[in-house]
Design a binder for these strands. Structure first.
Length: 876
RNA sequence: GGGCGAUUAGCUCAGUUGGUUCAGAGCGGCUGGUUUACACCCAGUAGGUCGGGGGUUCGAAUCCCUCAUCGCCCA
């Protein structure tokens, strides 16, 4: 068979993915095995794969493939999220481009467009995940707006309402004037902006006096309903009980007192606009102030805005400052940096706004969620540093505003039958609503036509917080076989940016609706950044095209590249060079396979070096496997990969294969061959979670396999005891080989020229690796001697001395120089050890083990110094 | 403004409860090497007063204090 020297990822990836799919290896159904389940963090249904997804899903695939190899019934549930604001915004923009305004459409018409859009672009991202090798159970693919998923959301809403946990309130909310909807606190991003502080002069009613206030938002003076001073502020005491006149509006407003006012800020005198500021609203409630809302829903001014009606808030800010200045109300302006809230999705500046919204009480939901993560550790966060952040958020949480003024999403199941504030019912459908409405109103004549369903829809997260339950239909049929089997799920892999949006809320939902945690472990990945530490984003254009990367480096190469430097919770500075490293690794494994595959077997005796080499590798493999298991258990996936990488590249390829390799064009004995193949197979199993395609390809090329024998469903190597002695002996031998190589290099002795080696075995080193030293160093003759060999080059490993005689004169001066350097270094080392040992307090206080270690160092150093000195004398 | 975390080799990071190797890895660098699996390779090698200062201890990258710089979360 002629195998190309370069691994060609493109030609094999689709082949194996189809094969795995065809044989249903990703499929999971409840059976007698122990389950291992993961639910995917559902990406935006119309989104495309970006680096964050790639990393996130690679990690999930590693976990799920490893679980599968470990004999679990592995189930990875894929799906997508309807992403209310983002998707609605895209559809609105698309319609606009076609000359259609959303306001010209009915809800039904708009939803039809939205569904068309979803069907056209929906699920592209899932196809991309397949290219990456993700082994999701695609038959389970869910969408947050599937009928059953929607029904779950509505049922939960009704339940919570009936429990008194959902209420309607007239509250200050975060208003996105661009999307014309409210946002939850978590969807607001605070940014520092350079602005100005305007000092405005208000006249005092019935006097010539004026008072100056400082504000960052001069346009809101039209909504002012009070001036507030601190009662402890001597400067303004005389104003108590008086009234001030709002400039331009000429309204008289009361001057109130409250300790809330910071006397240090501005002039120590505050204008109060209850309709447009959270703190002012609180003041207003406390002092029973009038509320004047000056904005429309798109943040243009309404009729309270006088002659500014219809103009945008920022246009008005400029114009009103000009007018105030012209009319003498503007005292001065100062530069001022302030934090403004912006919409996570539309980037619009958030306007605090009073409106009727739906809220979910948080107080009770938070308790079990805090306990599970911080006390019982029923749910573990990796890395644990996020526990602090989690605690802080949960302890300061406010009720969750769950209504959105959007059409794309789950419509709130509240039905109004009258104009009164309480003339509504909450029900799962119109029929039930009618029955409830009749009962509640006492009006038996009501018909469905009299009911008006709430126009708002629910926050996207109000559906995704149910995800681990609803994908198994655990809301509608709480005792079905699937939910009982797969829930709680095992691991969740997601970014820390949605720790609050999603993770915490799933924990709330899990305890509230199942009385159980939704998952046991949460692995929080870092954000993917570019080399300059900038977040990957479309606007910066610094996000590489995911599919192009796969094409260039192979899915396995990209997976390895992403995992190599992605310690949990640490940001990943993405560099394509890492994918190149992954690709090189693929090629390395490929070529190891080519080498082994090319060997001719013969009925010859197994050489001693091969016996030893294989014995060593088997122990080394076990040692590494133990390490890898430990790293997996701590979710240190990149460390597990690095350990695998070094095992395969260094120990397997560079050492084992070189050690057992037959001479050029010579056959290999059958026993060694079989053992190397078995070892190779075990390596492939360790590699499979990271590099599924390459490992399966090599596995299948090794021999004919039935589908049941495919690598993806093979058995993970089991752990056994291992002998550390042989590993130590090997390490010693490898230092000897290294010494030989160094001398060869320094003296320009080509490897093909055999040399002889003599040694004084002060260390009483085991001779078991001698045949290997001979082979790896191309040593013709290896002899044990008692005396120094004159006229030979030498090196030392611990206190052992090695001599390589060379033809012609050796450079005595150079040799002496080297020896002296080594001697002075060792003497310095001995001195520091002896200093420690002569310190009584050290000897008395340090543990015996440590003292013994130091004494051993002392003995070794003394022995080495002796050999060095003797050698020097013989040369001089 | 409040809270949390970080600062170790040119880069990205390990370093577990303070103590066996006078601090480790990968990448990159440098030097040499291609008839004999792989130059997407092999071999060898250099590189760090563990951010600064102080303290506790027989002993500190590790614990405490302080300063500096950076990041994240919240208001």
């Amino acid at each position: 068979m002629d195998i190309p020297s370069k691994y060609d990822a493109k030609s094999v990836e689709n082949k194996w993915y189809d094969y795995w799919m065809k044989h249903g290896f990703f499929r999971s159904e409840p059976d007698e095995r122990e389950p291992y389940s993961i639910v995917i963090p559902p990406p935006n249904v119309t989104g495309v794969l970006h680096m964050g997804h790639m990393m996130n899903n690679t990690l999930q695939d590693v976990l799920i493939r490893r679980a599968r190899l470990n004999g679990y019934n592995a189930c990875w549930v894929p799906g997508t999220d309807h992403a209310a604001i983002a998707t609605e915004a895209k559809v609105v923009a698309k319609l606009k481009a076609e000359g259609i305004e959303k306001s010209d459409l009915t809800r039904e018409e708009f939803l039809k467009h939205a569904w068309d859009w979803t069907h056209e672009y929906g699920g592209v991202i899932l196809e991309q995940l397949k290219k990456l090798g993700c082994s999701c159970d695609w038959d389970r693919t869910k969408f947050t707006m599937d009928d059953d998923m929607s029904a779950s959301v509505i049922k939960v809403f009704v339940d919570l309402y009936e429990k008194g946990m959902i209420y309607r309130g007239y509250r200050m909310v975060n208003w996105d004037p661009e999307a014309k909807t409210t946002l939850s606190d978590e969807e607001v991003i605070y940014e520092e902006r350079q602005g100005q502080l305007y000092y405005l002069s208000y006249a005092i009613e019935g006097s010539d006096e004026k008072v100056t206030i400082a504000t960052t938002r001069p346009e809101t003076i039209l909504g002012d309903t009070a001036i507030c001073i601190n009662p402890n502020d001597e400067r303004y005491k005389h104003l108590k009980g008086k009234k001030a006149i709002v400039p331009l509006a000429n309204r008289a407003i009361p001057i109130i007192e409250d300790e809330y006012v910071d006397v240090e800020f501005g002039t120590g005198c505050l204008k109060v606009t209850p309709a447009h500021d959270e703190n002012d609203k609180n003041l207003g409630d406390k002092h029973k102030l009038e509320v004047i809302d000056i904005f429309n829903e798109d943040a243009t001014l309404n009729s309270n805005g006088l002659h500014y009606e219809g103009k945008d808030r920022f246009v008005v800010r400029k114009e009103i400052v000009k007018e105030l200045e012209e009319k003498g109300f503007l005292v001065k302006t100062e530069d001022h940096v302030n934090k403004v809230g912006t919409s996570e999705r539309t980037k619009a500046i958030i306007e605090p706004r009073l409106s009727d919204q739906w809220f979910l009480k948080m107080e009770e939901l938070v308790k079990p969620a805090l306990e599970a993560v911080l006390d019982t550790k029923e749910i573990k966060l990796f890395p644990s540093k996020f526990e602090n952040t989690y605690r802080h958020w949960l302890e300061n949480i406010r009720d969750w505003n769950i209504s959105r003024q959007l059409w794309w999403g789950h419509q709130i199941p509240a039905y109004y039958y009258g104009d009164g504030e309480k003339d509504f019912v909450v029900a799962e459908n119109a029929d039930e609503a009618l029955a409830k409405a009749k009962k509640q109103s006492g009006n038996e004549a009501l018909t469905t036509a009299d009911l008006q369903q709430d126009n708002d829809s629910l926050d996207t997260w109000f559906s995704s917080w149910l995800w681990p339950i609803s994908v198994f239909n655990g809301i509608l049929e709480p005792e079905n076989k699937e939910i009982e089997y797969y829930y709680p799920t095992n691991d969740l892999v997601t970014g820390p940016d949605i720790l609050f949006f999603w993770v915490a809320r799933m924990i709330f939902a899990g305890y509230e609706f199942r009385g159980k945690k939704p998952f046991s472990n949460v692995y929080l990945t870092g954000l993917v950044r570019d080399k300059q530490r900038r977040k990957m984003s479309k606007s910066l254009g610094n996000s590489p095209n995911a599919l192009k990367l796969i094409e260039e480096y192979g899915a396995d190469g990209v997976r390895v590249g992403l995992l190599l430097s992605s310690a949990a919770g640490n940001d990943l500075l993405f560099d394509e060079a890492l994918c190149q490293q992954g690709k090189s690794f693929s090629n390395k494994i490929w070529n190891a396979f080519r080498l082994v595959k090319g060997w001719e077997m013969a009925d010859i005796e197994q050489p001693e070096y091969a016996v030893t080499a294989i014995k060593w590798y088997k122990n080394k493999f076990q040692q590494t496997l133990k390490e890898i298991e430990d790293q997996y258990s701590k979710y240190r996936i990149s460390d597990a990969l690095m350990a695998t990488y070094k095992l395969v590249w260094d120990d397997f390829c560079s050492w084992l294969l070189e050690m057992v390799k037959p001479a050029y064009q010579q056959p290999i004995d059958e026993k060694t061959y079989r053992e190397v193949i078995a070892i190779f197979e075990d390596n492939l199993k360790l590699l499979h979670p990271f590099m599924p395609f390459l490992s399966e390809e090599v596995w299948q090329l090794m021999e004919e396999r039935t589908p049941e024998d495919a690598l993806i469903v093979s058995k993970w190597p089991s752990q056994t005891d291992f002998d550390t002695e042989i590993i130590k002996n090997f390490d010693f031998a490898s230092e000897v080989i290294s010494g030989i190589r160094t001398i060869r290099k320094e003296k320009n002795i080509a490897f093909k020229n055999g040399i002889s080696l003599s040694l004084i075995n002060n260390e009483k080193a085991d001779s078991v690796f001698d045949t290997i030293i001979k082979k790896m160093g191309n040593i013709d003759e290896l002899s044990y001697v008692d005396e120094k060999v004159d006229g030979a080059l030498s090196f030392r490993v611990k206190s052992n001395e090695y001599f390589i005689p060379v033809s012609g004169a050796i450079d005595v001066e150079e040799e002496i120089g080297k020896l002296e350097e080594e001697l002075s270094y060792t003497e310095g080392f001995l001195k520091s050890v002896q200093k420690k040992l002569s310190n009584e307090r050290f000897v008395n206080n340090a543990p015996e083990k440590v003292v013994a270690g130091e004494k051993k160092k002392e003995t070794d150093a003394i022995a080495k110094i002796a050999t060095l000195k003797e050698r020097l004398i013989s040369l001089k």
